[in-house]
Design a protein around this nucleic acid. Structure first.
Lengths: 233, 233
DNA sequence: TCAAAACAGTGTTATTAAACACAAATTTAC
DNA sequence: GTAAATTTGTGTTTAATAACACTGTTTTGA
């Protein structure tokens, strides 16, 4: 058995979903072109209007994708956890980035030049289907988000955000504390409201015994009620 | 020269972008499985929660894709003109439809079972890239729409809607009359506001000599100013 | 370690847009 | 051809949420 490179170990273990579709030749191409980069807390990975050059793969940490809008307002569009891929949409669309990505916390990312990904897709239908599937799921999510963010009231939108955080990053061993610690501002940018209103609504949820807040640590006490608020509030 | 079937004529002429990627064998498969269906004004093509079965191709007419939200509110997500494809996202995502599609006016649509499309994609990388490109552009559009609809004020949102209608359906020979005649309600559903507010804002735009309204006929008089309102209003 | 910056929290006011209530005009269906 | 239904238009009220202003607290970085 030939000794595997560190990169190949990482890719084959963590990026199995993509790796397993590849032929030995294609695997060699990926290993050869793959690099790893560490990002500090709040460091920007790529920014709006830049040319998309890399497929990013989050190996460790947490990443937000966001878009700046009118005035100083920002909308967080998607959250990533290991092992998820991002940064490829703009390349496939033939556009500059319309959003930015930044690390929430110290994170490790793998990167693969999009030219390499492009040529692999043209050789490998399973890989093409992987991206078709990912893009399709994201598009459905964005369409749903349009309706949720424009039609729900503040309480419903914040409940949605909290439920998204549970789904995306999960809970600690106590089965109630959110694994992600976000600023009030990020929470507001996720749920399309001002920071003041995010704070006030968190307070309201605390008073209603739906959550317990301790700094940035949020414990989910009554998830069913949060779901009701998401649906009707 | 072999006489071509009517379907093959239609497909090869109107759906050239897709057709030209196919091998003779694949073209035969498409011709064999392709059907045409006419829809009346306001007729529903497919509805939310249904299982996606067909790739739809709009050959003639105008189609809206929309999603119902809280209470009786509806958000129009995308507009289609000939020759555009839709209805495939949910299939690729492995989900039921999250939106509905209906004809704005009497329309002719081609349809191809998604199983056929799926098997063609798995054989044909150019076709896979076609869908990757379409999905990527749509996803960028939805992400941009999220910010526009949540952060712009009513005037900016209605200006956006009018500019979208110009871009999507174009103008009559007079170079100012919109080719699409929409109800005030549809205009409201496109720009995330109540019908009353769509009517009032149209009146405001008329008073400001940006447009001339005659029933459902809208003439664009000052497009640069509409762009300014879209950007800053 | 200490000053500056960023973040969290709260009260007050202003603004936006929805909700509601009708009347008039137009379209649709029998 | 006409009654019913739908669409358009407008005035008024109400609710939601942003904007603003300020204090206290925590974090950061030299």
């Amino acid at each position: 058995m030939i000794k595997k490179s560190t990169f190949e170990q990482i890719i084959s273990q963590d990026m199995a979903e993509m790796w397993n579709t590849l032929t030995p030749d294609q695997k060699r191409i990926v290993t050869k072109n793959f690099t790893i980069q560490n990002f500090k807390k709040n460091q920007i990975i790529y920014a709006e209007k830049e040319a998309p050059e890399m497929l990013w793969c989050l190996l460790k940490g947490k990443v937000k994708m966001y878009k700046s809008g009118i005035g100083d307002r920002v909308q967080i569009l998607r959250l990533y956890r290991p092992v998820q891929y991002f940064g490829y949409r703009a390349y496939f669309a033939g556009e500059p980035y319309v959003s930015s990505a930044a690390a929430f916390e110290p994170s490790t990312l793998g990167m693969l030049p999009m030219e390499v990904v492009d040529s692999l897709i043209r050789q490998n239908n399973d890989l093409a289907m992987f991206f078709i599937h990912e893009l399709s799921r994201n598009l459905g999510g964005s369409d749903t988000k349009i309706v949720n963010l424009t039609q729900k009231h503040i309480r419903g939108r914040l409940a949605d955000a909290l439920l998204l955080l549970i789904e995306n990053y999960g809970l600690e061993d106590d089965d109630s504390t959110l694994k992600i610690y976000m600023s009030r501002e990020d929470l507001a940018n996720l749920s399309n409201m001002t920071t003041s209103n995010a704070i006030r609504t968190l307070t309201a949820f605390t008073n209603e015994k739906l959550i317990i807040v301790d700094g940035r640590k949020i414990k989910i006490i009554n998830e069913p009620q949060l779901r009701k608020i998401s649906k009707f509030g």
